[in-house]
Simulated scan of single mutants.
Amino acid sequence: MAETDFTMQDEMRRAFAMLSGKWKLEIMWLLNQRIHRFGELRKAIPGITQHMLTAQLRELEADGLITRTVFAEVPPRVDYEMTPKARGLGPTMEALAAWWAVHGGTVPVRPGAGRRKS
């Protein structure tokens, strides 16, 4: 198979890789609601460290899913928002939320899998 011959499985693997990471989907869910500042994201995601949030945001930006806007203010203000490409994931997020509303109550709670305090 030539290097450019991708199967749908290969394409899905690439798509999943863009969104994999412990916090990426939660970040994307929040940014789907509105533009957030770094500190707002940190407060909205209990348990995430500043280092991990920075790393996840950088990866999402590198993949073209979010934009980072720095304002020349003192103190500096940085806003994060979804790109139009990422907005295309909106129906997928809504479908996942609808699925969870129906089936989430049947999913056993795993110890340590809930939201942690920061």
Rank of each mutant, 00 (worst) to 15 (best):
D63T: 01
I66M: 06
R42W: 06
A17F: 13
F38N: 10
L89M: 13
M93D: 03
T69W: 03
H103K: 15
V109K: 15
D10R: 04
K24I: 03
T4A: 09
T83S: 03
P108D: 13
K85T: 15
I27H: 04
E26L: 11
F71I: 15
D63L: 08
E3C: 02
A97S: 03
A113K: 14
P91G: 06
F38E: 11
T7A: 07
T4N: 06
K117S: 08
K85H: 14
I35P: 00
W99I: 00
R34Y: 10
S20E: 11
A86V: 11
R87F: 11
A44T: 01
K117Y: 04
I66K: 03
T92G: 12
E81W: 02
L65E: 00
G105Y: 04
L53W: 00
V74C: 02
N32Q: 06
A98Q: 10
L25G: 06
L53F: 00
V70I: 14
A2W: 09
R37I: 02
G88C: 11
R115L: 12
L60H: 01
M8I: 02
T67Y: 04
P91C: 03
A101F: 01
F6N: 12
D79I: 07
P46N: 02
T69I: 08
A44S: 09
T49A: 08
R87P: 00
L65C: 04
D5H: 03
M28E: 07
M1S: 14
R115K: 11
D5R: 09
S118T: 08
R110S: 13
L25K: 08
T54A: 10
M8E: 07
R77K: 15
L57Q: 02
L31C: 08
L30T: 00
P108C: 11
A98K: 09
I27N: 12
L57G: 01
L41A: 04
E73T: 15
F71E: 13
A86Y: 03
G90N: 14
R68Y: 02
A101I: 01
A113Q: 08
R115Q: 13
L60V: 03
A98L: 05
G105C: 01
Y80D: 05
R37P: 04
D79E: 15
R116Y: 03
K117H: 09
V107K: 09
D5E: 12
T7H: 09
H36K: 11
M18C: 10
R116W: 05
G88L: 15
M12N: 09
A2K: 07
Q9E: 13
L96E: 00
T4G: 06
R87G: 01
W99Q: 01
V74F: 08
E40L: 00
I66E: 02
P111A: 12
L96A: 07
A97R: 13
A98T: 05
D63H: 14
E40M: 06
S20Q: 05
L31I: 12
S118W: 05
P76I: 13
G114A: 08
H103M: 12
